[in-house]
């Protein structure tokens, strides 16, 4: 693999990792508050469709983004009602909402545009266009670092940078603010929060809403950044990969960045089987790369590489007890 190819692959790693990172952080908020969410996939899909449709109709990616967040939020709130208010089974709710999203996105897109369940191709201001970071041009002459900065770091859509910013922001919110302290507490032991006189329900709804916003960003980037419009099932299991990354990251923001970059790198490699063969000298089947994030997650879950301990109160509806 020559340097130019490596830069290319790292460049696409950045782009492929972004929706994973946003969804992973989305799941982090929810699960840290004690609400399991396997409905990340559905929320992303919903956001992708809303963004694709509204951006196509208005010609503005930013209005599209708002629509995407709104779409994702509706699903987040249904999940909240089912799992917080009605103390339903959080896993089943997540599964159910994924199916609803998978179907309803195509229904809406089809009825709006009649293009086989796709939204029309987006271009110009209806997409997240590359942002040239300062000095990218000037520094591109510098060996190794120059091209790296110009290609890998610079030249992505706004959401890539927002996603990256979300990592330190999430870390800060989680470990340096009152909100973060309470959020972590409610996911570990809701009784401790309740006896301290804080509302468990309100905290958990807040977390679920943040999850909705972040999934909205992830879906919007899918439709208006990574691709040029919404297509059926376009998230292709990314919600579950994000979930895997979350477990892999042991519910921590910086690890989440690393995990999603790793999984994004696998995805980028899977697009270039020629490179793998050239580098390793033998064929690595593409499906093996596709499956790698899941296999790694199972190994982590099995506790062979350090123990992944989920928030202790995760998945359990809170009922006040004596």
């Amino acid at each position: 693999m020559d340097f130019a190819t490596l830069i290319q692959i790292l460049d696409s790693t950045m782009r492929l990792a972004t929706p994973l990172l946003l969804a992973c952080l989305a799941g982090l908020y929810s699960e840290r508050s004690g609400i399991f969410d396997i409905g990340l996939e559905g929320k992303m899909l919903m956001a992708a469709m809303c963004t694709g449709a509204v951006a196509a109709l208005t010609g503005s990616v930013w209005i599209g983004l708002l629509a995407g967040i709104a779409g994702s939020m509706i699903f987040a709130l249904i999940h909240g009602v089912a799992s917080i208010t009605f103390r339903g089974n959080q896993l089943i709710s997540g599964v159910a909402l994924n199916f609803v999203a998978s179907g309803i996105t195509v229904l809406i897109a089809q009825s709006l545009f009649r293009q086989g369940g796709r939204t029309p191709p987006l271009s110009g201001p209806a997409r997240f266009n590359p942002i040239e970071l300062p000095f990218a041009e000037a520094l591109s002459g510098v060996p190794i670092l120059g091209p790296f900065y110009a290609e890998v770091i610079s030249g992505h859509g706004a959401l890539v940078y927002i996603a990256l910013l979300c990592v330190p922001l999430t870390w800060w919110a989680l470990f340096r603010t009152r909100f973060g302290l309470r959020l972590r507490a409610v996911g570990e032991n809701p009784a401790s929060v309740d006896t301290a006189g804080i509302s468990v329900v309100r905290l958990r709804y807040t977390a679920v809403i943040i999850t909705g916003v972040l999934c909205g960003l992830a879906g919007a980037y899918m439709a208006a950044g990574l691709q040029t419009g919404f297509g059926k099932e376009m998230t292709a299991g990314r919600g579950y990969i994000a979930l895997a990354a979350l477990i892999f990251a042991k519910w921590r923001p910086w690890y989440a960045l690393m995990a999603t970059l790793l999984f994004g790198f696998f995805q980028a490699l899977a697009l270039r089987p020629d490179v793998i063969k050239g580098t390793l000298g033998f064929d690595v089947p593409v499906p093996a790369l596709d499956a790698l994030p899941y296999i790694l997650t199972v190994i982590v879950l099995a506790g062979f590489v350090g123990r992944a301990i989920p928030p202790r109160a995760g998945g359990e509806p809170y009922v006040k007890e004596r």
Partner: peptide, 13 residues
């Protein structure tokens, strides 16, 4: 959609 809604109502709600 119907499949998802049935799961939602029978299993979670």
């Amino acid at each position: 959609v119907v499949q998802g809604l049935v799961i939602l109502f029978t299993g979670a709600l």
